[in-house]
Design a protein around this nucleic acid. Sequence first.
DNA 1: TTGTATGCGTTATCAG
DNA 2: CTGATAACGCATACAA
Lengths: 347, 347
Amino acid sequence: MTEVSRPVKNVTIADVAARSGVSPAAVSRVFNGRGGISSATEARIRRAAEELGWTRSSAAVALRKSKAMAVGLILNTDITGPDVMPMPPQVLMGIEHVITKPGYGLLLHVFSNDPEEENQAYKRLAADKRVDGVLMTGARVEDTRFRLLAELGLPAVLIGPTPPGVVFPHVEYDPPGAGVEESVRHLFALGHRRIAYIGGPLSRVQPKIRAEAFLDAMSAVGLQPVLTVSTDYTADAAVSATKEAMTRADTPTAFIYGADVMAMAGIHYLRGTGIEVPRDVSVVGFDDQRLAEYMNPGLTTVARNSMQRGAHAATELLRILGVDLPEPGPLDAPRLIVRGSSGPVPE
Amino acid sequence: MTEVSRPVKNVTIADVAARSGVSPAAVSRVFNGRGGISSATEARIRRAAEELGWTRSSAAVALRKSKAMAVGLILNTDITGPDVMPMPPQVLMGIEHVITKPGYGLLLHVFSNDPEEENQAYKRLAADKRVDGVLMTGARVEDTRFRLLAELGLPAVLIGPTPPGVVFPHVEYDPPGAGVEESVRHLFALGHRRIAYIGGPLSRVQPKIRAEAFLDAMSAVGLQPVLTVSTDYTADAAVSATKEAMTRADTPTAFIYGADVMAMAGIHYLRGTGIEVPRDVSVVGFDDQRLAEYMNPGLTTVARNSMQRGAHAATELLRILGVDLPEPGPLDAPRLIVRGSSGPVPE
DNA sequence: TTGTATGCGTTATCAG
DNA sequence: CTGATAACGCATACAA
């Protein structure tokens, strides 16, 4: 046990320099595209690097330049259970698609809704310098993260609407109305007058805006809502709320839900009690899930271009970070997709 | 309320040392749990760090220790379109759950099925030292990644079964049979004798194993399959295959699909042609989607514990990386969940 | 056009 | 128990 196996020496910029007979600085210049190197030596350097299989150590670069070449994606959810992904996978793929080409990585983080823990996590993220910026989701009406991030100097882009009065880079995919207005008009046109709304928690910006848009849209057509419920996004909550709605004196003839999974759970419950959709009750969901199309009946819902949302947010963030990217075009508007779950009001 | 920001100067270990009147080395020792520091000074150091809001710079640590404190998650998909996430979100959350506590980050990567591009990406991942190890998915029958990773010396754990003859760390969540056998027996017990199987591409290990398990299970009950189709995991492909099956002379009375989304699309198509499920045809899916429960009829399917799969894989990888974690217990077996989409054979 | 010297923030080694 | 010091691999200002 005298001789230990010699640790494999890492190939560094110095090795490349030595092999091509130049200084490390020259190698660095070549690989940072800063020019000032004769094309002859550049070729030599590149060849040497290739032969040695050298790549810049991201850790060293990060330390030296204070740039991590990575962005964080912070998911934030009220749901503590294991089975809810607080964002459509398509958003993820949109982000990946954009950041990969300029060489950025995506560092994923999922936090619960404990603000204290969350703030700590953001602070660490900033202090650790693991990421150059973050993509945030799930803005709360009272959200301390915006000030915190500004204080930390950590660039960020919010996916979704900002709280009222807060100015912050974001991707606004939800213009006031956001498909709710369309949903209400759709149901109204079908003759529905008793409409219930079962949405997400009002502590969140997006569900709040949607709830308000619902009320506005109802007023616009001269209706009073039968019921407006705010709950979390789970199937169970949707069932409870639906159940409650159906025990009232003036039972609704139509439901608008804040998420497709809620709508599907609602339909399931209704059918379990002998109520047929859309014969007896119409249902409209939100945020077209891939499977909504294949339900029976197919779910009428509001579709958003999730992939595009992710791509836009990523582009926005990278532009803030100084990456030369063209400004993204306008976002597709959410649109109502009418399928079988909504129909004429009964009799 | 809170302290105002000090935007410029980074707070380093030296600042903490100065503030607590010790050397940087002492601070380092405390935060690496190496002991050798009197508890009095340790307390002082910790307080100073807290007051200054200091955290180790991950870049510096990575450089010094050659440890990135991050693992990569490599998703790999045949599907080039934007709308398919090649892994359940629950797996992601399982991984996150495990790696967060010991301070690891999750770097997400999605690659297409171009082997050349993929190999390059792995090489870069290894050379860049951005991650200490990777979690892989979607093993192909002919998969060059295993040799490549071994050559690169990049620790890795495969989520899913390895190709035949390949020895590689992996989380085997799919014992031969994998719920298919159960599915076949279930349908057989209901009186079905003409059963079709519509699964994933045979170039992938998991669908291949499943297809073989199907044939075995059919033999075991003395049946010949009406049809065995291998296709990609899309809804469209499922519809085509289903259509084809129903135009044959001996139309199947039951379908087993390789994925829930395929099953749902199949049901949708069948109902569109006037065929009722389960009255005329029974359907069994695979890989319980959250929404499968709320379909009408509810989808009979094979459920796996996705969160657990992710957690196990992450634990395995971290253990390989030297993190002191208890060996994970056994994986839950996939199990058949019988819902409304499967019933007695007609007439 | 190229080389030299320095420091990014941390941890490990060696003294004290 | 604690401190001084030398790397880790790279990019940059400054020289040549």
